[in-house]
Each structure stands twice: as C-alpha cells, then as structure tokens.
C-alpha cells in the first residue's frame, strides 16, 4: 500500500479496502464470529490512507485502539488482521493482540497501543532510533482528539521538538472522544493551535479529502527526513459509526451526521475520479469487485485457520534468553 507514488484510484482502492473490511468485520461480529469489541474507522479512511501513501515499508506507524485502517494502509495483510479478529493463531499477533492491538512489525507497524495517548512517546523513541541509525526513517503517531489532552502527548511533542526528531504527529479530530464532544474538553478551536507552543508547525487539513491529507503528509515527512523536526497535523474528520460496538450514538444529532455523511471520503474521491476522467463507473465497479475478492479471501483464511492452543498463553512473554 505504501511506497511509490499512487494515483487517486490507488488511494480509493485502499480506502475502499478499509471500508469493506470493517463492514464485513462488523457483520461477522454480529454473527458472533469475532470475540471482541471493534472500534471501527468508518468515515476516517482518508487520513490513514493519505498519510501512509507517503511512507516507506520501513517507516513506522503507531496506532490506537482503532487500528484497522492504519494497519491496512501501512500494508498489514487484511487476511492477517481478519484472522487476528477471529483470535486465530495465524493472526498478525498470533491471537495475542485482537482488534485493539493489530499490527505487524514486518511492515513497520508494532501492535497498536490501546492506551489513549500512549503511543506518542513511543513514536518519539522510534524516531530517535531512526536519527541514531541515520536511516532516513520516519515515525508517525496517529491519535485522536481525546488523546491530545493526555500528558503523554504533551511530553512527547516537546521532546520531539527539542531534538528535531523525524516524527509526524497526526491528530484525527473526529469531534468526539468516545461520547465527549470536542468543545466540552478544549478551550481552543483546533488541536493544531497547540503546535506553536512546542515551536513546531501545526497544520489543519480536511481529513476526508485523501489527496489533501497526502499533500500535508508529503511536506511533514520531507521536513522530518530532512532533520527539521516534527509536525503536528490535525485532520478534521468524523466517525460515521459508533465509538465501539456498544455505542447507540445518542449523543450526536442526526443533522450533524447527515452533514458528514455527505462528505464521506469515499464519495468525495469517487466524484473527483469521475470528474477528472480518471475512472468511470465501470472502473469503480471493477475496484469494488477486486476489493470484495480480497475481503472474501481474508474471511475464508480466518474461518479456516486453527485456534491457538490454550497453553500458547505461556509463550512470548520474553524473547530469547540472550543474557
């Protein structure tokens, strides 16, 4: 998913893969196939897709309790994520992570950090390693508007700034931390307004416009790789679904949801593709079919994969015994 320059149709395919993956996961959850909660990313796909399109396989992505989109965009195989949701031994974490800890270090994404704000200092540390190793690598920390009020994020942004670390902090402001609205816990209009306090650039972007997200990510990553330090990107977006599977969404107005539903990142991208003549309805239908095949295969893989042994719980507490 990451690497070479991607067309808008490529970005659309990634966003659609995330969307269809999660819709299917949600249906499978309702069928009782997935023994966990799910924090869905529906509506925010343009953020992960736009940012990860700029990253190399060896760059790092740190995610949250809502990680499926980041994982797919960074290149974790959908079948490995689905098998993890199914708690199968073939999952990306061998059944030891589950939905909230999806990741695969082979593509630069360690298990997602489901403690709100907890990944911000880790991202700084991974960026510090890239700086030591002079490998040109970048670390990206995705976090929500809720996490922006965690002390860990403050400490991390300051450390990243004073050491000019190659890290990009991407705040996905979806206007709600669980059910708490942004305006009740912020006395400012934008999370990015805090960036000047750390002496770093703060950039606000339409988080439902995948090309706009990619543009700001290109600049932030270039700045990071050049040794000029971190950027705080605030992507304004919206969850078109509940916080978790048990969320009846009674704290948001239907009018507000309708406004954002009209700004669905997939709809925006599809319209633009057609307006520019980069894709026809037939092309989009073909992508839809390709994505469906990927998801079907992922589900089949998860369904047919073996469960872990109960005693596998004893494995992987420590690596090696080198000392």
């Amino acid at each position: 998913m990451s690497g070479q320059a991607q067309s808008l149709l490529d970005l659309y395919r990634t966003m659609l893969t995330i969307r269809r993956f999660e819709e299917r996961a949600n249906a499978l959850y309702m069928e009782g196939k997935i023994p966990s909660t799910l924090h869905l990313y529906i509506g925010q796909e343009a953020v992960a897709t736009g940012v990860c399109a700029v990253l190399k396989r060896t760059d790092y992505v740190l995610s949250t309790h809502r990680p499926h989109g980041h994982a797919i965009a960074k290149g974790v195989a959908p079948r490995d994520i689905m098998a993890e949701l199914y708690a199968k031994v073939t999952g990306c974490c061998k059944g030891k992570g589950g939905s909230m800890h999806a990741g695969d270090i082979r593509v630069g994404m360690p298990p997602a950090v489901a403690i709100v704000g907890g990944n911000a200092p880790i991202a700084a540390g991974m960026a510090l390693a890239c700086k030591f190793q002079k490998n040109g690598g970048v670390a990206v920390s995705f976090f929500g508007d809720g996490a922006a009020n965690e002390g860990a994020v403050h400490e991390a942004l300051n450390m990243a700034a004073i050491w000019s670390l190659p890290v990009v902090y991407v705040c996905e402001n979806n206007l709600y931390g669980a059910s708490t609205s942004f305006s009740t816990v912020f006395n400012i209009a934008n999370v990015a307004d805090r960036a000047p306090a750390y002496g770093i650039p703060g950039v606000i972007v339409d988080g439902n416009d995948v090309e706009a997200v990619r543009e700001v990510a290109i600049e932030a990553c270039a700045r990071a790789r050049a040794g000029a330090g971190p950027t705080l990107i605030e992507a304004k977006t919206y969850r078109l679904c509940g916080h978790s599977r048990s969320d009846p969404l009674t704290y948001r107005s239907k009018e507000e949801e309708a406004v954002w539903r009209a700004r669905d990142p997939l709809v925006i991208a599809a319209q633009r593709l057609k307006e520019r003549g980069e894709a026809s309805d037939a092309d989009l239908a073909r992508v839809e079919a390709e994505v469906k095949a990927v998801i079907d295969e992922a589900v089949a893989f998860a369904e047919t994969s073996p469960d872990p042994l109960a005693t596998d719980a004893l494995k992987h507490l420590f690596v090696g015994e080198s000392a």
């Binding site: 200092p121 880790i122 991202a123 540390g125 890239c130 860990a152 991390a156 450390m159």
Partner: peptide, 12 residues
C-alpha cells in the same frame, strides 16, 4: 516521555 522514548527506541 523519557520512558516511552526508551521503549520506542528499543523497539526500533
């Protein structure tokens, strides 16, 4: 911050 930076640097 310093503990998290150590965790991340070690992971990388």
């Amino acid at each position: 911050g310093l503990a998290g930076a150590a965790v991340g640097a070690a992971m990388a």
